[in-house]
């Protein structure tokens, strides 16, 4: 089976004549493919859908993506379906993904991929760097399912590393590394009473002016989402330029609903969050 060395590079810029965001440059190679972008005039956001036309992520796949948003541009980057990481033979190479997102002052980027679904015996390392210049704004959300829930196959991956690094200009705000075995994360979910289908959301939110308000009203609204098995907590990152929002739900449906609620709560602060990711 051939390994994929997927590559995606996008640069979004605001057109000088009307401020509408367009892809100023793009290049991609399988397994990446782009749907035709959609300009959402209501929220003035360019909706870009990245499609993986193959079944999913396979042994040896090396995916690299770089997305940059220039001043005045606004992009919602999403995927149409879950990213499945398939079973790998013990002697075959793992799969990896390196994602780099950068936002210039006055730019907006929302990254809203569908959930990651690691199958039995899979090995996957994802490293994400979110680089937001002071004056830029971003919302990034990663969703993780414990496996193929509908098939009764959960907590069965071999190795899963999810790294997230967030920078505001030269300042390192966050460097997280989720590197638990399936059994250890399952044991934590059991300890917390989150159930066999516990699903995870990890979001960060950066916008100008956040540092000036260490106790925004929306935090109480986010924390009020903690009902009926949902766990959620929001806390300012170092320097206060951004926030970490973590949430756990007893199943995938509730996880998506919670993410939707989070976006609605934050939308008055960041109006581009009102853009509907499913318009395409």
């Amino acid at each position: 089976m051939a390994d994929f060395h997927g590559h995606l590079a996008l640069r979004a810029a605001a057109r000088p004549e009307d401020g509408v965001t367009a892809l100023a440059s793009q290049s991609f190679r399988a397994p990446y493919h782009l749907s035709k972008p959609y300009w959402d005039a209501d929220t003035r956001t360019l909706l870009v859908q990245v499609v993986n036309p193959t079944a999913g992520i396979l042994s040896g796949d090396r995916l690299e993506s770089a997305v940059s948003v220039e001043p005045g541009a606004a992009v919602l980057l999403t995927t149409p379906s879950a990213s499945r990481v398939f079973c790998m033979r013990a002697d075959s190479p793992a799969a990896s993904s390196l994602q780099h997102f950068s936002v210039a002052p006055g730019g907006w980027l929302e990254v809203l991929p569908e959930p990651l679904v690691p199958h039995r015996g899979s090995r996957f390392h994802q490293r994400t760097v979110l680089d937001v210049a002071p004056g830029g704004s971003a919302f990034y959300a990663d969703l993780l399912f414990p496996g193929r829930i509908a098939h009764g196959e959960t907590w069965a991956w071999d190795r899963l590393i999810l790294e997230l690094e967030v920078r505001s200009g030269p300042a390192l705000l966050l460097r997280e590394r989720l590197d638990q075995s399936a059994s250890d994360l399952h044991a934590l979910a059991t300890l917390a009473g989150s159930g066999e289908h516990a699903s995870f959301g990890n979001a960060v939110f950066l916008a100008p002016g956040l540092a000036a308000d260490p106790a925004p009203v929306w935090r109480a609204d986010l924390h009020a989402l903690q009902t009926d098995g949902i766990c959620i907590g929001a806390s300012p990152l170092r320097t206060g330029a951004g926030w970490s929002i973590k949430f756990i739900a007893p199943d995938g449906i509730r996880l998506r609903q919670t993410l939707g609620a989070i976006r609605r709560i934050l939308a008055p602060t960041a109006p581009h969050l009102a853009c509907d990711a499913r318009k395409l």
Binding site: R175, R177, Q180, A215, H223, G233
Partner: peptide, 19 residues
Amino acid sequence: AGIGWFNPWLDIASARHET
């Protein structure tokens, strides 16, 4: 480059403890 580990429930509990 390999330093780091977190417990999502602990982070949530700590974030909520602030308020």
